[in-house]
Amino acid sequence: MKLEVFEPRIVAFVCNWCTYIAADAAGVARARYASNVRLIRTMCSGRIDPQFIMSAFEKGADGVLMCGCHPGDCHYREGNYKALRRYILLKRLLPQLGINEDRLRLEWISASEPEKFRRVADDITEQIRQIGPLIENGGE
């Protein structure tokens, strides 16, 4: 596979009440974050179904980011804990499927942390760039 520049495709599932606002603010403040990251808004990190994550990878994502409110701050009380447990299990599952577990990341980012969001987005983009693309077998 010849790739001069590999631009990773990253899907970020973000909680409506915190990270989404932070990301929005990051955009407004023109504190540009890597354009590789595409946002999908969910009502709570607890709504990020593992099926979404698997399907993101299946459909071509090179990395997936799960974002929610800090522990204790979830609007639905324990959605983010559920997200954490799912994340831990998924991290165990992905390597079994031959997929680098670092392609999945979980971050707590509150509405007031646009800077953190920008940093995380840049950071995961760089990290996935290092890891390399995830491609359909048989493709050259």
Binding site: M1, F57, E58, G98, I99, L134, E136, N137
Partner: peptide
Amino acid sequence: SLTSKKEV
């Protein structure tokens, strides 16, 4: 279908 993906 994820099992048919490969790390590059």
